[in-house]
């Protein structure tokens, strides 16, 4: 019981540290790819400290509550995803719960931005929704392929089955590739940073955010990076202990970063069509294979 409580407290902190490390790393790595020197790895942390100490504006109660809901939703999601064998709440919710809990973060941001009454926010939300509709198709196909293959909806069971045998990526390479292809869309980074395109719609949902609102959104983004990559590692790369899990996450993240640092931004309709084409086809074929065998 005590171990459980401690892990409930510690796990979000680990996730936060890893998330911030990844955020800083991505800025540094992208800078190096651009042949720049880049900021220090702690730069996202500096930004958040600044933002917390900066004043901001609020448009109303919902404006505050939405941001809080968004971050809280991301924090609890961490507790359901096994991280190196630690999953304090895995018995309270399976993959289906995880899929649904992933809703809370965008819902919170959308509600909060909606009260700001800035059309840029509305455009950002509508783009987020459409992009989500785009990437959910291959995402669900890949998740269903894994669940059908292992005949379980529990993420812990999936990880356990992989540890005693080969990783799922060897049985289900196509869904894994499809998941990897839509990972930038889920993270909202280039070439899929359509939602927060600063040059087009003035950073979309975050247009009215400043100060603590932006700080919470940045923290939420750090959690979000952790969650999406940890889910990939759990589903296809067989989990692992604390160290190997982290190394696997790092590898996946860097691979994604190398590919995506050099791409320009897609338009929203191009992004939807892309998601519904190759990733969806690959994941669907993978699902059919998993269903038949």
């Amino acid at each position: 019981m005590i171990i459980k409580v401690i892990s409930i407290i510690v796990l979000p902190l680990i996730a936060l540290i890893i998330g911030f490390f990844f955020l800083g790393l991505s800025r540094k790595v992208i800078a190096r790819i651009h042949r720049r020197y880049g900021p220090p790895i702690s730069q996202p942390l500096i930004d958040v400290i600044k933002l917390i100490n900066q004043e901001s504006i609020s448009h109303g109660k919902l404006f505050d509550m939405g941001v809080i809901l968004s971050l809280a939703g991301s924090v609890i999601l961490v507790l359901f995803i096994p991280f190196g064998g630690i999953a304090p709440l895995a018995t309270s919710g399976d993959l289906l719960v995880i899929i649904y809990l992933m809703l809370l973060a965008p819902l919170g941001v959308a509600l909060s931005g909606g009260e700001a009454a800035n059309p840029n926010v509305s455009i950002g939300i509508s783009r987020k929704m459409m992009l989500a509709l785009g990437y959910e198709v291959p995402f669900l196909f890949s998740l269903l392929a894994v669940m059908t293959w292992y005949k379980t909806t529990s993420l812990v069971e999936v990880v356990k089955a992989q540890q005693s045998f080969l990783w799922a990526i060897f049985y289900l390479p196509l869904p894994a590739v499809a998941y990897f292809m839509i990972l930038p869309a889920m993270l909202g980074i280039r070439p899929f940073d359509i939602v927060s395109a600063p040059q087009e719609i003035a950073s979309g949902t975050a247009v009215e955010y400043g100060g603590r609102y932006l700080a919470l959104t940045t923290i939420q983004h750090a959690f979000h990076i952790f969650i999406d990559i940890a889910l990939f590692v759990n589903l296809f790369l067989g989990g692992g202990n604390l160290l190997t899990f982290f190394v696997k996450m790092l590898v996946v993240f860097l691979l994604g970063l190398f590919i995506n640092a050099v791409f320009p931004r897609l338009r929203i309709d191009q992004a939807i069509k892309y998601c519904w084409k190759w990733p969806a086809i690959l994941a669907l074929v993978g699902l059919i294979i998993a269903r038949i065998i």
């Binding site: 800078a31 880049g38 040059q199 247009v207």
Partner: peptide, 10 residues
């Protein structure tokens, strides 16, 4: 960016 200076949209 190495000075922490980045452009933002709003």
């Amino acid at each position: 960016e190495r000075f922490g200076v980045i452009p933002v949209a709003t």
